[in-house]
């Protein structure tokens, strides 16, 4: 029987959403190919997490070792190299997350198994899979298949699949010994650091005015700041605006920034890359202003304004000031 294997992702005692997303889609695939669904957890003192996954898979493999307390590609590579070589699952699912991006390509090379990264769609096709990837910042979808024979490795984009609960499975936990020894590692985890907290907390605002690279220059920030002020909103932004130091990190929305759910989110000059969208798609009402009528941001926005932000934003600001005075 074909085994579909999910590599669980957890951090600081919590399973991450991607784990459920992979299990949900993995189960669908297992049913289609007539196989079973397994999940493997690596860590230390994570029995409770394994319990939580029981209803979601036929088998929960648990590999515990104090050297696995904090994620490290070197220990993960070693453990998974041995585990996957022994089990040879038909398909292994990994998150296209900071963690998966770090070890999946390494594992692929060391196992000599083919890898397809950042997939948003997957269909079994005979002994192969048809995978959908989104490229060019979300403007083009590409359909790819594996060229080599399996076992296959695939990484899933966060949020691409629903992590919904299904009829519980009667799974079992299988504890396996860790193959790690006290060898010296070339890479060592030291500590976590939290991003500096800013003066403003964008997660608490009712109205966010978010600005992207379309603003062209840090000197133009006052333009959107005035709009935000005129409607009692708070400024937020996409990553390039922080990278260029036009606004502080605390303003960044997205996977590596904040997740926000304001009543209204106005995205100005933001293309809608998935890393940005992941942080704002839960907003009540989304208004996007972009000069590109095909910008992916319009696929999550409720209202769109197509045009040059430098012409539109001042008019909106003035009009709102005028209407508020009435």
């Amino acid at each position: 029987m074909k085994e579909i294997m999910v590599i669980a992702e957890h951090r600081q005692g919590e399973l991450r959403d991607i784990t459920y997303e992979m299990l949900s889609k993995g189960r669908e695939i297992a049913e289609t190919v007539g196989g079973t669904l397994s999940v493997v957890l690596l860590g230390k003192g994570i029995g409770a997490l394994a319990e939580r996954l029981l209803p979601r898979a036929h088998r929960v493999y648990l590999i515990e070792d104090e050297r696995l307390e904090f994620y490290n590609s070197e220990t993960y590579e070693r453990v998974l190299l041995q585990f996957l070589t022994e089990r040879k699952p038909h398909l292994t699912l990994i998150g296209h997350t900071a963690q998966g991006m770090d070890f999946a390509p390494a594992l692929a090379v060391r196992l000599g198994w083919p890898l397809a990264t950042d997939c948003i769609g997957i269909e079994p096709k005979d002994e192969n899979f048809t995978l959908t990837r989104q490229i060019y910042g979300g403007k083009i979808n590409s359909e790819v298949t594996f060229l080599r024979k399996g076992p296959f490795l695939v990484t899933f984009r966060s949020g691409a699949f629903e992590g919904k609960e299904k009829e519980p499975l009667s799974g079992e936990i299988v504890s396996l010994p860790s193959p790690l020894t006290d060898e010296v590692l070339a890479r060592r985890f030291l500590q976590f650091v939290e991003a500096a907290v800013g003066e403003v907390d964008i997660t608490q605002a009712d109205i966010l005015v978010a600005v992207g690279r379309g603003i062209k220059d840090g000197e133009n920030i006052p333009l959107v700041k005035e709009l935000a002020d005129s409607i009692g909103g708070v400024l937020a932004c996409s990553r390039p605006v922080v990278d260029k130091k036009w606004l502080p990190k605390a303003c960044q929305v997205g996977t590596s920034g904040k997740t926000v759910k304001p009543k209204v989110y106005i995205a100005i000059g933001i293309s809608g890359a998935f890393q940005h969208v992941a942080g704002m798609k839960g907003s009540g009402t989304i208004i996007a202003i972009n000069k590109d009528p095909k910008a992916p941001i319009f696929s999550v926005a409720h209202y769109g304004i197509i045009g040059d932000l430098f012409k539109i934003v001042p008019v909106i600001k003035d009009k709102i000031k005028e209407l508020k005075q009435k």
Binding site: R11, A98, V193
Partner: peptide, 14 residues
């Protein structure tokens, strides 16, 4: 090394 949600990890590598 950047993780999600503004979290980073500090790593040493030879």
């Amino acid at each position: 090394r950047e993780l999600e949600g503004g979290l980073e990890e500090v790593v040493e590598v030879d």
